[in-house]
Amino acid sequence: MRRIRFWGTRGSLPVALDAAALRRKMAVLLRAASGRTFASDDDIARFLDEAGFDTAGTFGGNSSCVEIETGGPGHVLCDLGSGLRPFGQAMLARHGPASPQTYHVFVSHVHWDHIMGLPFFTPAYLPGNRLFVYGCHAELEEALRRQMDPPSFPVRFDHLRADIRFVTLSPGVPREVAGMTVTAKLQRHSGDSYGYRFEAGGRTIVYSTDSEHALADPAETQAVADFFRDADVVIFDAMYSLADAISVKADWGHSSNVVGVELCQMAGVRHLCLYHHEPAFDDAAIARVLAEARRLEEITRAGAPLRVSSAYDGMVIDL
């Protein structure tokens, strides 16, 4: 496994930066640039880097879709959220419509934000392409077909011309896919969700979204820590504050930056990547969650440091 590329990092539903928010960012940048001159594009790039990602950039708004670049043939994805559309566009731009590709997608669960991208995934409409959809839900195929039935969508699932195969996985049973060993784990979420552990070439990536953690159950905590054990990267649902996650939003099926740091420290993880951002959060709020997670890691660190980042649409993590 070579790298992780994020195509959609938002939870619940896609969001977009609106004109007013963009204007506010530009005003901050213009104030900061007051009196400065820029001799080159590099100067401008340095200034934007100094301005902070939440001001000069954006975490984006597509819903869950993460690519794992294996270095081998075939493309591996986690979830089919709206981020699948730009991924598909990138694949067409890179390979063209006449070069058949194979896609392996691991679906955490069939809530709409995790499957809504499929009708807009152009490669699925092209004969010659192969799409393997892996998941533990018995209703996986039904859910994908149903969202393309009238009146919900004007194009039915059967119009997808790629060779689409559904593969049912069993939690805890490793499976060899695209040169990786993949193991699913049941997670707490309405209708169940599944995390995936990907292992290849001495590297491990864990994709664990839409998962609420039962803090009062030591055995369950240990099981999650074991699932995360020694991972290079854990992609983790940190949608709510801890206070919200265990009070007003208890049983909503999500977690927090606090629990993410604790579990990853417990498991000896190298890099925690916060994910599935609350759609009501603007870039400043997501940046604050990240800063606080980093601070928590710093003040509670007992061994090796845990790198903490926050996923954004377009982010790349090299392994």
């Binding site: 504050s241 801890l242 206070a243 606090v258 606080e292 601070r295 928590l296």
Partner: peptide
């Protein structure tokens, strides 16, 4: 101080 920070990060300071 460390516990106060944890309260703030967890949003427990408002509860």
């Amino acid at each position: 101080p460390v516990v106060a920070e944890i309260f703030a990060i967890s949003r427990f300071n408002g509860l």
